[in-house]
Simulated scan of single mutants.
Amino acid sequence: MPLTEKLLILAIAAQVLLTLGILIWLGFERVPRVARGEIAVKDIAADRAAYPLRARLLSNSFDNQFQLPVLFYVAALLALWSGGAGWAEVVLAWLFVALRYAHAAVHVISNRVYRRFALYTAGLVVLALLWVWLVLRLIILAPSI
């Protein structure tokens, strides 16, 4: 397997690790509070308002990992499937993942909305570039695929 494909798989794994890490942190924020009776199950059955701010921020960040990253996973898998994942895909993938880590950190630590929005937008731009490159490479530059 070429190095570029290994690096692309590692970018996918890093994004998965971020998602799982947020989920585990969320569990440490939520489960003990419910287990100790600080939060009644009936109060969280329909929404998250009963949880403290940190748990709500983690929950929102976790949910956010199923928005843009879904399009990232599809793009990365398409690049791998095509058998021609190159350095452009690797660089864009890792840049996207780095921006997702930064976005998640801002989301759950300071929750500075403008900074978070800037990081989200930067990730969106990188993801769009990845998709534009993939379409160009797979459809226009190599139409035999």
Rank of each mutant, 00 (worst) to 15 (best):
I22K: 01
Q65M: 12
V74F: 09
L99T: 10
L58G: 08
R48M: 15
R137W: 04
I39A: 08
N60Y: 00
G83W: 02
A55M: 04
R100Y: 03
D63E: 13
L136Y: 12
W133F: 11
S59Y: 00
D63R: 02
L136A: 13
L57Y: 00
L18S: 06
R115P: 00
L53H: 06
R33I: 15
L92S: 06
A122F: 01
L17E: 13
L23R: 06
I145V: 11
R33P: 14
V132Q: 08
P32H: 05
L136F: 10
L23P: 07
A55R: 00
L141N: 12
R54Y: 03
V41A: 13
Y73Q: 11
R54F: 04
L124P: 00
G37A: 08
L26N: 07
L138F: 08
R54G: 11
E29Q: 14
L26K: 03
G37M: 05
A105H: 03
Q15G: 10
N111R: 08
L78R: 05
Y51I: 01
R115G: 06
L80K: 04
T4P: 04
A49G: 10
P143L: 15
A104V: 09
V31H: 06
A40F: 03
A49H: 04
G27C: 09
L3F: 04
V41H: 08
L57E: 07
P52T: 06
A98K: 01
G86L: 04
T121Y: 04
I44E: 10
A46H: 09
A76H: 02
F117M: 13
Q65I: 05
A76C: 13
L95A: 12
